[in-house]
């Protein structure tokens, strides 16, 4: 667990939604690198990590971090809350082609989902999903448009 420096009146602890998926920054809304792995035999990148390569079946994969930035390959705005979802609609699901790494799906955040466009550049950040029972802020990786206007 990383403690946020006591600043800006917020002392809530940050907790990753799942351990080991990204490097936990000191504060919410800071950039994150996704932690995945890459097949040593064929070079295919995976996020989340796999034990065996989906492309060539090799079990020889090395852990790696992927780039924090990428661009939107496609997106949709979800307007009905799915079962078990912690995020209130409307929100955008984006498929992001990382500059160095695989294509990943996540939520767009800190933006107007109605103004997203295919091809927009995004930065991956750690953003709040919910609070847990102990009062910690549970964060996951989300995509923040680099600029939106």
């Amino acid at each position: 667990m990383t403690n946020i420096p006591a600043a800006a009146g917020s002392a809530a602890k940050l907790k990753p939604l799942r351990p080991g998926m990204f490097n936990l920054p000191a504060q919410a809304d800071m950039p994150v690198r996704l932690l995945g792995n890459r097949c040593r035999a064929c070079g295919e990148p995976f996020f989340p990590k796999r034990h065996y390569c989906a492309a060539c079946t090799s079990g020889d994969l090395e852990d790696t971090g992927f780039s924090e930035t990428g661009k939107i390959d496609t997106f949709t705005v979800v307007r009905q809350q799915p079962p078990g979802g912690a995020i209130a609609p409307p929100y955008a699901i984006v498929r992001v082609k990382l500059d160095d790494g695989p294509t990943v799906q996540t939520i767009a955040t800190n933006c107007d989902p109605e103004k997203l466009k295919i091809g927009d550049r995004v930065q991956l950040i750690a953003h709040r999903v919910m609070d847990d029972e102990a009062g910690a802020t549970v964060v996951s990786f989300m995509a923040q448009p680099v600029k939106q206007g």
């Binding site: 939604l17 799942r18 998926m21 390959d73 496609t74 997106f75 949709t76 979800v78 809350q81 799915p82 079962p83 078990g84 979802g85 912690a86 995020i87 609609p89 929100y91 699901i93 498929r95 799906q105 996540t106 939520i107 295919i118 999903v129 919910m130 996951s140």
Partner: peptide, 21 residues
């Protein structure tokens, strides 16, 4: 799963993402 909690496990969204593209 993290996809469920983040609201990514939405069946129509798989088709919607492909349709937008």
């Amino acid at each position: 799963s993290y996809q469920t909690v983040m609201g990514l496990a939405v069946m129509p969204a798989a088709y919607a993402l492909q349709a937008q593209r």
